[in-house]
């Protein structure tokens, strides 16, 4: 991405974390702005153009989730990557359902965060056009002709399985909650266990080692993620 630097707003109440994020993200030539609480964040967003928000869920004055809700309902559509603690899967799922794009748990690796930021940005930029053929590793998915190949071998999928895979592909690199997947594939909230069964079957077909999946990754307690192409 050439052109003006991507502007990222970092919202976190802990100064050391903000410092760390500034240093780390600066390596990608992003322009970093900081906010220490929800109030400061909203003020900044009103006045400045922002391309992505890194949001800590544990903010002092207002819950990070509340801020997220307000932003989305206020029409602010920038991608959001949330930071949360390890044991708060419920919070993560809620954030994703409220419109966050992805998450990392503290303590996180900078690499992972940067990767997810990039994916989130890419998806936004590529909203309008989907590439017809998606490839990652040995897996290729032709979205137009609805053909899935592992290496050179074609894989036969049931309609449901294909739908699941297609949804994952459309959000490749980003996490999808169970609920989001079910909404896309079933059109509403069905039995989560149903979804799991289907994913398992899907894995049996497209993963070289279903027990140690390389493509469809499990985000325990949250949902699934299709590995992004490098």
């Amino acid at each position: 991405m050439s052109g003006p630097a991507v502007k990222i707003l970092v919202v976190d109440d802990e100064p050391p974390i903000r410092r760390l994020l500034r240093t780390g993200l600066a390596t990608q030539d992003y322009a970093i702005a900081e906010a220490a609480d929800a109030g400061q964040a909203q003020a900044h967003l009103k006045s400045e153009k922002t391309d992505l928000i890194v949001l800590d869920l544990g903010l002092p004055d207002r819950n990070g989730l509340d801020l997220l809700k307000d932003l989305r309902s206020g029409g602010i559509d920038v991608p959001v990557v949330v930071l949360s603690s390890r044991t708060d899967e419920a919070g993560i799922v809620q954030a994703l359902e409220l419109g966050a794009d992805d998450y990392v748990t503290k303590p996180f690796s900078m690499n992972e965060l940067i990767a997810r930021i990039k994916v989130a940005l890419r998806h936004r930029l590529q909203e309008q056009g989907e590439k017809p053929v998606f490839k990652v590793g040995e897996l290729s998915v032709d979205l137009v002709r609805r053909v899935v190949k592992l290496g050179d071998n074609e894989v036969k999928l049931s309609p449901r399985e294909y739908e699941i895979l297609r949804t994952l592909v459309r959000h490749a690199g980003r996490v999808l909650t169970h609920q989001a997947l079910m909404r896309e594939v079933w059109g509403g909230i069905a039995d989560v266990q149903n979804l799991r069964v289907h994913v398992r079957q899907l894995r049996q077909k497209i993963e070289p080692d279903p027990e140690q999946p390389r493509y469809i990754l499990t985000e325990t307690g949250v949902g699934y993620r299709l590995r992004a192409p490098e």
Binding site: E211, Q212, L217, T218, T220
Partner: peptide
């Protein structure tokens, strides 16, 4: 849950 899935993760 599928045991295999959790083993994987």
């Amino acid at each position: 849950h599928d045991v295999g899935e959790i083993v994987g993760s």
